[in-house]
Each structure stands twice: as C-alpha cells, then as structure tokens.
Design a protein around this nucleic acid. Sequence first.
DNA 1: CATGAATGAGAGTTCATTCAT
DNA 2: GATGAATGAACTCTCATTCAT
Lengths: 172, 172, 172, 172
Amino acid sequence: MQFALHGFHKTKISEIVKEANVTQPTFYLYFKSKEAVFQELVDVFKEKLYHHVAQSKLPADVAEEGVSERIAYGLRAVFELFQQNEEVARIGFVVSEEATTIKAQMTAQIENNLTEEARLGYFHTTVNFDVVAAALVGAIEYLAITKLWPGSHTPDELAEEITQLFLHGLKK
Amino acid sequence: MQFALHGFHKTKISEIVKEANVTQPTFYLYFKSKEAVFQELVDVFKEKLYHHVAQSKLPADVAEEGVSERIAYGLRAVFELFQQNEEVARIGFVVSEEATTIKAQMTAQIENNLTEEARLGYFHTTVNFDVVAAALVGAIEYLAITKLWPGSHTPDELAEEITQLFLHGLKK
Amino acid sequence: MQFALHGFHKTKISEIVKEANVTQPTFYLYFKSKEAVFQELVDVFKEKLYHHVAQSKLPADVAEEGVSERIAYGLRAVFELFQQNEEVARIGFVVSEEATTIKAQMTAQIENNLTEEARLGYFHTTVNFDVVAAALVGAIEYLAITKLWPGSHTPDELAEEITQLFLHGLKK
Amino acid sequence: MQFALHGFHKTKISEIVKEANVTQPTFYLYFKSKEAVFQELVDVFKEKLYHHVAQSKLPADVAEEGVSERIAYGLRAVFELFQQNEEVARIGFVVSEEATTIKAQMTAQIENNLTEEARLGYFHTTVNFDVVAAALVGAIEYLAITKLWPGSHTPDELAEEITQLFLHGLKK
DNA sequence: CATGAATGAGAGTTCATTCAT
DNA sequence: GATGAATGAACTCTCATTCAT
C-alpha cells in the first residue's frame, strides 16, 4: 500500500488506482476521498491495536517471578501485531498525524501498568514511570522500523531483548 | 518555523511568507527554492549533531565507576542539543526523509560505543547491542518529542532517567 | 498553431488551450510540458526534412543537361515540404533555437552536392561553394516566409526562379 | 549586448544591469522599460540602415560595365554596416519583430533598383525581380549570420561572391 | 543620482475530484 | 458498475518594475 511507503502527501490517487488496476472514478465509487481512505486505514489499525492490547493483559494474580514473562508477553504481542499488519501499523503508528495521539495513549497505558506493578513492589521506584513508558514506546517504534519490518529480527527476539534490557539493564 | 511543525509537504511558501510578513517573491530573494531551504536546515542539524557527538566522547581511560557518568553525559549532550535547536532538530531528526539515515548513523555509533565498552567488561553480554542501540535512539526521539520539547523535563532529568534505566533496569 | 506564429516564449499555454477550448490541465493530459510539445514539433520537422532531402537526390549519372533539372527538382521538393507542413517548418526552420543547427546541416549538405557537381565540371569554380550554399539556404528561408507561405508563389515557380538565378545569373 | 545574443524574451533586466555594473533601479532611471530599450536599439539600426542605403546609391549614369561594380559596392556597404554594428544589426535585422518590416522595405528597394536597371537593358527579364530581391535579402541575412559575424569572411569577399553569383550564376 | 529591498502579476505545472457516457 | 476525458483550485517559481532611503 502506497500510504505505508510514501506517507499521505507523496501518495497519489493516480498511483493507488494504477496499483489496483482500476480507474480513478472507480476509486471514488468505493471511497469518499483520499483523506477518507487514509483515515479508514488508521481506524483499522486503532481497532486492532486496542483489541489486542485489551486481550494481552495477563491475569492480575501473577506471581513475582512472572513479571518478566508478563512484560515479554505483552511486547511480543505488540510486535506480532505490527508484523502481521505492517502496512496498517506503519500508517497508524508512524506516518499518520493521529499517530501522535495513538502513541500517547499507548504510553499512558504502559505507564499505568508499570505504576500498578511498582505498587505491588516488583520494581524499584528511582525512575519516573512516565519517562520509562515513553522510552519504551519510542524503542518499540524504532525497533519495528529498523529490526522487525526489515525482517532481521522476530517479535520473539525483540520482546526478549527489550524485556531483558528494561528489567535488568546493561550493567553487570 | 513551519517546516518543524508541519513537515515539508504541508508547509506552503505562502504560509511561510505570511508569517514573515513579506510576499512570495521575497522568499526567492533569500532562498533558492522550497526544497533548498529545507535541505539547508537538515544540513545545519546534521553538522551540529555530528560535531556534538564527536565532542561528547569521554576519554577512553575512564574508570569503571565512570561508565554511568559517561553515558549520562553523552545523553545530556544530545538532549541539550535538541533543546537548544528544537526546530532544526525536529526537522533533521523527525520530519525529514533524511531523518532515517541520520538516525541510522547515530544508532551505528552508539552500537560501536556500547560494543567497545562491553569488550572492556563493563556490561554483560546477554543482549545484542544493535537492538539496544536502536532502542536507545527510539527512546531519545520519542522522549524529545513528548517530554523535552513540551518543556516538562530537562535534558538533565531525561539523561539521568535513561541512564539509570538502561544501566540497571527496573527490577529491584 | 501558436508556436509557429509567436515562437516559444510568447506562446502561452493559456492561449493554446483557449484556442482548443479546453482548460490548462487538459494540456498536460496530452503533453508532458510546454517545452516537450515544442521539441516534438521540431523533431517532426527534422525527421521530415532529412527524409525528404535524402530522397530528393537524383541519380548520380545525370547527364550534363540534367543538372539544372536536378537542382530545380531538389528545390521544388524543399518548397513543397515547406508548403505542406507550414507550421512545423516555420517552427523547425525559423523560430526554434535548433533552427540554427538544422539550417547549418542543410547548408553543409548543399555545399557537398555543389562541390561534387563542380568536380564533374558542370560549374565554374570562381565562387566558394560554402558561400553559395549559405546564400541558397538564406534565400530559401526568406522566400518561404515572404512568397511561399503568404501564397503568392508556388513551390514550382520559386524553384524555377531560383534555379535560373543561381545557374545563369541576371546578366544578359 | 544581451538582446543580440538571446533575443528579447530570454534577455533579463537582471542580466543586463549585471553586465553594465549598475543596479536595477538605475536601469529605470535611463530607460522607460525593457521594451523601450529594445525598441531604441531597433530604431538606431533602422536609422543607420536607411542613412547608409540612401548614401550607397551610385550615380544614375553608370555605364554598362559599371553595373557589376555598383551592385558589389552596395552589397559591400551593407555588409560593412552589419559588421561595424553587429549587435544592433542582429537586433534590428534578425531578432526583433520589426525585422520583418525592415527586411521587407529593403527587399522593396532592391527590387526597385533591379527593375530600373533591367529597364535600362542590363539584365535579361526571365526572372521576377521580386523573387530575386527576396532571395538576395535572405542570402544577405544568412551570410551575415554564418560568415560575416563569425569572422570567417570579410564584407568585401562576401560582396564579391554574391555579386558574381547573382550576375553570372554557377553554370560554366 | 543611486540602491537595497521588495512586489504585482502571471507563468507553467500538479492533483484530487467529477461529469457524461 | 465502470470509465475516458476533463477540470477547479492550488502550488512553486520568475521577472519587470518600483518604493523608501
């Protein structure tokens, strides 16, 4: 899909329809406008993302030793969603203007989770969780772009690495 | 600057000149083309970034206990650069097409530094440094956008938090 | 065609399309650019001219009394080409910048022919054939403009007159 | 002078003033408009041409054997004018729109002279003098462009060649 | 007298969008 | 339901021309 590759402005209707082997008027038979298709794609992603995130919560009574697993699980789920819906994720998470909002929401949710878990005593509290959450979201985005979508790393690998890093750090 | 806010395509010469209270031909008195101004801004940022990064390297003979300091120092330097050159950084690091390349180079450099330091025995080697480096760059970008530029956090705070996080992790 | 009348610069797309009763974008539906259309017209003329000139050569074994005929034939062919393709000829031979080159090539070819024929002893050799060739090309151009295209003279008449003049001169 | 090289439309005021080492407002101190300068140059040429032509008439009682001389003399005078005033001649005789009119007038004058001389019995009357006159004017223009201004031939050489050609032709 | 700085008017071009068929 | 053909509106850019100083 052209939008995912070139963003909104560089994507021309003429190219979209050429790729789809239809004519321009046909496009307007199915979509109200260029903006509308784009928005629809963003909405599809949002739908998927929210549905996914809602389902990816592990039960609340996870034991201490399960925290790492829980985090890895959630990350893997996100990366898998991104992998299986690359185009739509690229649009909704990277190139659209709404991406800002979407990422903000995701950040808030992560911050919540972390705070909750910290309250349960799993983490030390020398860092601010809003910063950590933002760092995580930024990391996820850039890893998707540079490691996941090019195919050099699997969701599993990335989830493991990031979990390890964010839980234990680099220091020996 | 309009470019920093809206990117290249949504930024119209007509808006730029309206903001500057001049007419369109005046723009072309000072700049060769829309593309040229944009590229010049990107170049200015690149220049600053490379110069900065080159200077922010601590001496190689830093003692073990200095590693944390070294990393915090480097991060603070980057965040300060971003803060003092918000517009140009936004353009060069976020909205330009060259941003991809610029971030890739920065990632490579960070990976190098980390690998070197790991060889000196400062870090454990259970994570891949290319992933860590990418995670760091992604984190930096998103923290700049959501915490630094809105003004809620200082370069110092962000550098401290991120150093803490990346060195020691969240786990108690 | 506006180009033939006003040349490249004074011809505006807005006028072309007004003449054709369409809007400006329609122009770009059929032509790549203003420059491209113009060049295409020049190329069409060049193609025609070269093809014509190549074909208008009489056999080499023409008898002495045939030389006059040969020249008249060649001239008539050129004038006919100009008459039947007035617009394109005007563009390619008169108003385009490439016209200089095109006329230079034609001059060279005529010079060749004359030199060859002189070597066969048909002409006296008290004139330089490069000057004669240039004179002929200049004459052809200006006669086309002032006598042929306005319709006051036919290709045949012009060819006869010029042949007569260039072979025998005015002197009694 | 830029006009002579590039014609009216491709010549920019900005280039003219750069060449003259003055600023654009200064230009408008001395000339009313771009068009006005151009027209002034054309007028200068016209003035020179008419003055010249008026003076270049040999006495009417020239003897038979003087006709050739008379023609050569007139041609040489024209070529000399063109050589000594290349820029202005290029403008007035080649690139301006008025050139058409100027050449037409010159053609008419030449036709007159020829007709007169023919009436005196110097020429045979198997050619139409309007065609001959046009051919001569066309030849003069193109010879000036290709032989005189590039410097390969002198006015004298060109005048001799053309006189020879137009009086006696090529035929042995 | 000369100029630095600016502009009105208009050029070519592009693109999302829509009729008539 | 689908399209060939067309367009309104907007864009970047240029250039002859003119103020305020």
